[in-house]
Design a protein around this nucleic acid. Structure first.
Length: 563
RNA sequence: GAGCGCGUAGCUCAAUCGGUAGAGCACCUGACUUUUAAUCAGGGGGUCAUGGGUUCGAGUCCCAUCGCGCUCACCA
């Protein structure tokens, strides 16, 4: 990386650099030579897009920090899975719900995998998370709460917390309601017989022995359980604090819904003689109605859904943009995110180093963004936007990438999927977006008597055309056909004469509405040339039969049933 | 009750340590041997929510007010 860039980074206003500078101040105070970033994950369901966002954003800060420190400070990102948490509720979107119901309350890492592919439910969801993170190429180390607890990596801090039990309670109790405060315990013993994470009040604790005493409310049996060795876990706020302290976490982001929790955990962390991490509060993702996205509601977008319609870089682009402002995370933001990304990729090449540091693609690609893919040469070179490709899909009236490619190649003959692999994937995404969002919005109508006659004449005209008729010839023939129908004659058109009237726009609108289900459309001669003369005849015949309307209704019905 | 975010063109939003307010869509006009557009050229349109303050200079920083919205206060 050029020295110029490194100097500019010291004052760069982009938020990842601002965050990195907070860490610079922290290591200056402490003198430490390594920095630990953490992101948390609750594996009671499939990975959430918010989880992805947190890892993506934390990675951007980590990378900015590495640039500022010239690699002299070692860094690590720990993706910590709280897989020892007890299962509270059976998720809706999993099989074997009966089996899961029998394991309510047990640690996720102890419950069998309802999908039957992994050693436990937690292992399954952890693998899903890691699959996503690996697919995006994040550098991180995965951590399982269960294995950390069992391996004793938290033992020293757990014992310290037990020794300062009263102090911890004094911090927690004021934040709780009376009835909850009466039964609250920061320590949750694992039932030695049932394996359930017990949420019971403690009847005693012994700091010297490192144990807690409690009673099983179901049987009245009393137990004495060590807080160490994985026999006991912590309530989540003390758990978070203990983890910060035990592992020495330096940086962790959280959504704004956790502001109070971050404060409380920070206080507990200090009570354990730890220093809470530097924090960053990001705004929440909202659905189309402005509601918070949550796993339990199932609103908003999943990672898979985003990746159906656009590539991972566009999702990173979305995550980079202004993390402190609430963002609607819905299908319609995808094209914008893709095109923002593409234009920043292009802009990067002509930017000054200082400007490059504020360019999202600098952070998305860890300082080394790829070159843009252009079509055409010299002054005529350009790149195709996602919005334009969506138009193309609509023009071609096709969800087949090959047809869209055909359109592109009419204007740029040398361009192929081999020379432009990213354009190829963009076209694939555009085709799917068309299928799922544009096509359902279509509305076909039936032709009236005059229109039926015109369409029959159109078939007859097309049957006289060769298969390779040019768009211009077809266009001209279309005008002649329109000119012959009184309804579409326009004597006010430029160049029109009483003998040779112009053609009203209504003629073409009629074709779009009946044949394509849209109010607007492509130059129709071009459409026929691309779509094919014979297929166009078939399309018109289907319209005359009422098949287009019937097919579209059937299509909508299957979608409705699927949704 | 506590905390946070947002008010910029008709709509959706940009504006990178304060320096002449921009884009996309929409709309209007014109050109391309007839009005259709992955074409090109041009145009209209904003009291940057309101009122103060700091400054040579504020959409940007500070204070207050109004409006909209979200989150937390049971669990994670």
């Amino acid at each position: 990386m050029p020295a110029l860039l490194l100097d500019a980074a010291n004052t760069a206003p982009a938020w990842p650099f601002e965050e990195a500078r907070k860490l610079m101040a922290r290591i200056k105070r402490s003198g430490q030579t390594s920095v630990l970033f953490e992101t948390g994950y609750g594996p009671s369901g499939l990975p959430h897009i918010g989880t992805f966002g947190e890892v993506a954003r934390t990675s951007m800060v980590k990378r900015a920090f590495e640039i500022l420190t010239r690699g002299t400070v070692t860094t690590k990102l720990l993706a910590f899975s709280d897989d020892m948490d007890g299962l509270r509720k059976v998720p809706d979107n999993v099989p074997n719900k009966d089996m899961l119901t029998r394991h309510i309350g047990e640690p996720l890492s102890r419950i069998p995998d309802p999908f039957g592919t992994h050693d436990s439910f937690a292992a399954h969801n952890n693998a899903m998370l890691r699959g996503f993170l690996d697919g995006f190429g994040f550098e991180y180390e995965f951590a399982s709460a269960t294995s950390y607890y069992r391996a004793g990596r938290f033992d020293a801090t757990l014992l310290r917390m037990l020794a300062r039990y009263e102090k911890i309670m004094a911090i927690m109790l004021p934040s709780l309601r009376q009835e909850r405060a009466a039964s609250y315990s920061p320590f949750l013993p694992i039932h030695p017989e049932t394996g359930v994470v017990m949420q019971v009040p403690l009847t005693g604790h012994d700091a010297a022995a490192g144990t807690i005493d409690w009673t099983d409310p179901a049987t009245g049996q009393t137990f004495t359980t060590p807080v160490t060795g994985g026999h006991c876990k912590l309530q989540w706020k003390p758990d978070w604090a203990m983890r910060w302290c035990a592992l020495g976490v330096d940086y962790e982001m959280a959504g704004k819904d956790l502001i109070d929790s971050v404060k409380l955990s920070g206080t507990i962390c200090r009570a354990l003689d730890g220093t809470p991490p530097e924090g960053f509060t990001y705004e929440l993702f909202l659905d189309a109605e402005g509601q918070k996205i949550s796993k339990s509601k199932g609103n908003g977008l999943t990672i898979d859904e985003w990746l159906t319609y656009a590539g991972p870089t566009s999702l990173s682009q979305f995550m980079f943009q202004k993390p402190t402002a609430a963002k609607r995370l819905h299908f319609d933001v995808i094209p914008r995110a893709v095109d923002d990304y593409l234009s920043f990729i292009e802009a990067y090449q002509r930017q000054e180093p200082r400007e490059q540091l504020g360019n999202p693609v600098f952070h998305i690609h860890g300082g080394a963004p790829p070159l843009p893919e252009f079509i055409g040469d010299g002054a005529h070179r350009t790149s195709l936007s996602f919005a334009m490709l969506l138009n193309l899909a609509a023009v071609a009236n096709s969800e087949d990438p090959a047809v869209i490619w055909g359109f592109v190649q009419r204007h740029a003959k040398a361009v192929t999927p081999q020379t432009h692999p990213r354009l190829d994937s963009l076209i694939g995404y555009a085709a799917r977006y068309f299928r799922d969002f544009v096509r359902p919005a279509k509305s076909y109508r039936a032709p009236d008597a005059v229109e039926t006659e015109v369409l029959r004449n159109l078939i007859a005209m097309l049957n006289t055309q060769p298969a390779d008729a040019s768009p211009e010839v077809l266009q001209s023939a279309l005008y002649d056909l329109g000119r012959s129908v009184p309804r579409y004659q326009d004597f006010a058109a430029k160049g029109a004469t009483p003998e040779r009237p112009g053609v009203k726009t209504a003629f073409f609108s009629m074709l779009y509405e009946i044949l394509l289900g849209e109010s607007k459309g492509p130059r129709f001669g071009s459409f026929i040339a691309l779509y094919g003369v014979k297929p166009t005849v078939a399309l018109i015949e289907q319209a005359l039969d009422g098949q287009l309307i019937a097919q579209h209704q059937a299509f909508l019905a299957t979608r409705g049933a699927a949704a």
